[in-house]
């Protein structure tokens, strides 16, 4: 019988800093992606559309978590930054730019706008900054609605399905691969930033800005970088959204979207990439779960849908409150506890 090492031992710092230090994690991840990749072959377009929405929500949530959870800069305007990216990408795309260039362009425009609205963060903290980003939300919504020449105003703006080298991603299953690719890239970017110099500086600013300054962190520069990167990624999510729905209108990027992104990172876990992913899945699936519940109970209580469907917002709010009371650190903490439990199973110590 061969002997196996118990636990993980590292011989270099680089190995320890790896994203997935154990082989078990790598195998699990590979299996997970294999399942994801063959998914579109078996799932109907309704399920695929939900998956696509989840993936886009993941980019939005991860980017907001970088700004709010990691850097501690409260933002109530994330939905609008998503919108800037959506309109930017749509306009570039309609001008004939290739898909990825349009996506990057939308992200860049969003990053610029985000950094401008991030300037008050030098002076404002916490709830005061939140109010100033709320102003950003309202101003940008106004611009979407009234810059008719560029955004189509209240009529909205049509966008073509993405096309790369003559191949058109025009169905839910086809575009899934494209969205999955961009989402993985974005999550990787945020993960890398968090585990390196700028990410540590972001947390330093969040936890104790005075001592961050004394260890040499340029507060203003790094706050702006956080705003810039966060809105860039939000813009990319918006660009994907525009190309996926193929029609964007101002009300898609309302205050409600900003709030639901905040809800995702609160429910998922502040400051955690995995938490944002959990939160995005949870919040996107919530209305679907309610629909499922009402339709499965329709035989027993046919009037239920008439009651529950209008209560969607109420259930959403209730969920948020319950999480804040019972699990303020979010789903990611539940995940960690579960992992710790199985690590030692069947021993209790």
């Amino acid at each position: 019988m061969s002997m196996q090492k118990c636990g993980l031992f590292y011989t270099t710092y680089g190995r320890e800093d790896g994203l997935f230090p154990s082989r078990f994690q790598k195998i699990c991840l590979a299996l997970f992606f294999a399942v994801l990749l063959i998914c579109p072959q078996f799932m109907n377009s309704y399920v695929m559309s939900i998956m696509n929405l989840i993936l886009i929500a993941i980019i939005g949530a991860v980017s907001l978590n970088l700004l709010t959870g990691v850097c501690g800069q409260m933002s109530l305007g994330h939905g609008a930054f998503l919108g800037v990216g959506a309109y930017g990408a749509a306009v570039f795309s309609n001008m004939g730019a290739p898909f990825f260039l349009a996506l990057l362009g939308g992200g860049a425009v969003s990053a610029m706008i985000g950094m401008i609205f991030g300037i008050p963060s030098l002076r404002l903290k916490g709830i005061y900054l939140a109010i100033s980003t709320l102003a950003a939300q309202l101003i940008l919504e106004y611009v979407f609605l009234h810059a008719g020449g560029l955004t189509g105003g209240a009529n909205g703006l049509p966008v073509d399905a993405p096309e790369i080298m003559g191949y058109s991603f025009d169905t839910d299953s086809k575009i899934f691969y494209l969205i999955l690719f961009v989402t993985v890239l974005c999550v990787l970017v945020v993960t890398n930033v968090i585990r390196s110099r700028p990410g540590r500086a972001f947390v330093a600013i969040r936890d104790y800005h005075q001592s961050a300054e004394n260890v040499g962190v340029n507060l203003f520069a790094f706050k702006l970088q956080a705003f810039g990167l966060s809105s860039f990624l939000a813009g990319v999510a918006g660009g994907l959204w525009a190309h996926y729905t193929m029609y964007i209108t101002p009300e898609q990027f309302s205050m409600g979207l900003s709030i639901s992104y905040l809800a995702m990172i609160i429910i998922g876990g502040m400051g955690s990439v995995l938490g944002s992913i959990f939160g995005a899945i949870f919040i996107t699936l919530l209305p679907e779960m309610l629909n499922l519940l009402t339709s499965s109970l329709s035989g027993v209580a046919p009037d239920l849908s008439a009651i529950i469907v209008p209560m969607k917002e109420g259930v959403f709010g209730l969920m948020l409150v319950l999480f804040l009371i019972f699990e303020p650190e979010g789903l990611v903490r539940k995940w960690r506890l579960t992992k710790a439990y199985w690590k030692l199973y069947p021993f209790a110590y």
Binding site: N192, R200, A201, V203, A204, A212
Partner: peptide, 28 residues
């Protein structure tokens, strides 16, 4: 005035912030 959310190791790495020579793009 520690960075309460960071590990001890990361607190010390932040201490070296000004000595680490790379920016956001390299970090990405």
């Amino acid at each position: 005035a520690l960075f309460r959310g960071l590990s001890v190791l990361d607190n010390l790495m932040v201490g070296r912030h000004s000595r680490l020579d790379y920016g956001l793009l390299a970090a990405i």
